[in-house]
């Protein structure tokens, strides 16, 4: 299946999709998923999913709980090996993707698990520089990038604060700053606003939009459909398979939402063309 969304523009010239060893200048396909199928057990969680994200897009993935949204992200990031199909990330196979610093990942608030760990905001953001530094030392220019990233997301005054003393919204900004410090070109967010209060959520989406305006490609999994419709330039509706891929307006007018949410794994139909 191929889903060419209404707003999926600018893919002229990238039709040669799967040629191995693609050169850099045709590399404006940031994510290229082809017929992905994957299941933790025999039952697939994600089935025959194909979609592409071009440089500069802001793509929101929505779907009911357990619809395979997070799993799809993990496949895109190369954290799981698909049972069939393939996925490319920034022009390389996801599984073998080596230039990790080009991708920033923000998950649900992880500090639930590491609640009492003493670590400052600056230390967390500096982690974005670690893939660049390897086993070498962190340099002053790394620290400068950290300060810059903190300024961009507006929390430079919190640099020496303990991460665990922040609000949920401030913490998620910290993770965005970590991705920025790493000079990420693609921001992958997995329900980043869970546990963040409403007003901070608005500010958070404003920040994402601003980063997108400045050229950052955004791939967002979000349970709040309203937020996706409001902010994303393209919506993918998922429930194991792709039910819709297109502009937010077209999505609002379609019945994809009802079908994806109403027919949980029963009555599979072809997705929107």
């Amino acid at each position: 299946m191929s889903f060419e969304g209404a707003s999926s523009v600018g893919d002229g010239g990238t039709g040669v999709g799967d040629t191995v060893g693609r050169v850099v200048d045709t590399d404006d396909r940031v994510v290229d998923a082809d017929d992905l199928t994957f299941g933790y057990t025999a039952a697939p969680v994600v089935e025959d999913v194909s979609f592409a994200v071009d440089r500069g897009e802001y793509v929101g993935i929505v779907g009911p709980n357990g619809s395979g949204k997070s799993t799809l992200l993990r496949l895109v990031l190369g954290l799981h090996e698909p049972d069939s199909g393939s996925c490319r990330l920034l022009g390389h196979p996801s599984l073998a993707f080596a230039e990790r610093e080009r991708v920033g990942y923000v998950a649900q608030d992880v500090t639930e698990d590491t609640k009492r760990m003493p670590i400052t905001v600056a230390e967390v953001v500096l982690m974005g520089r670690f893939p660049h530094a390897g086993f070498g030392r962190v340099t002053e220019s790394d620290r400068e990038r950290v300060r810059e990233a903190l300024r961009t997301v507006g929390i430079e005054r919190l640099a020496d604060r303990k991460v665990t003393a922040l609000s949920g919204g401030q913490r998620q900004r910290t993770y965005i700053a970590r991705a920025l410090a790493g000079e990420a070109e693609l921001l992958v967010l997995d329900e980043p606003t869970v546990g963040v209060d409403a007003e901070s959520v608005d500010a958070f989406f404003d920040l994402l939009e601003r980063l997108n305006d400045e050229g950052m490609t955004v791939l967002l999994v979000e349970h709040d459909i309203g937020a996706v419709l409001e902010h994303a330039s393209r919506v993918i509706c998922l429930n194991r398979e792709v039910y819709f891929d297109g502009s937010p307006t077209a999505f609002a007018e379609s019945d994809a939402l009802d079908r994806a949410y109403g027919t949980n794994l029963v009555g599979r139909k072809e997705g929107e063309k």
Binding site: L77, L79, F97, A98, R100, E101, V103, Y105, A107, V110, T114, M117, I119, E123, V124, M127, F130, P131, A133, F135, V138, Y175, R178, G182, V188
Partner: peptide
Amino acid sequence: TVTYKQLLYVTFDETAARVAG
């Protein structure tokens, strides 16, 4: 000393560490 950064990353956030390669 040599693996401080890597150990810290893995300790703080295992999934993000995997994404970071």
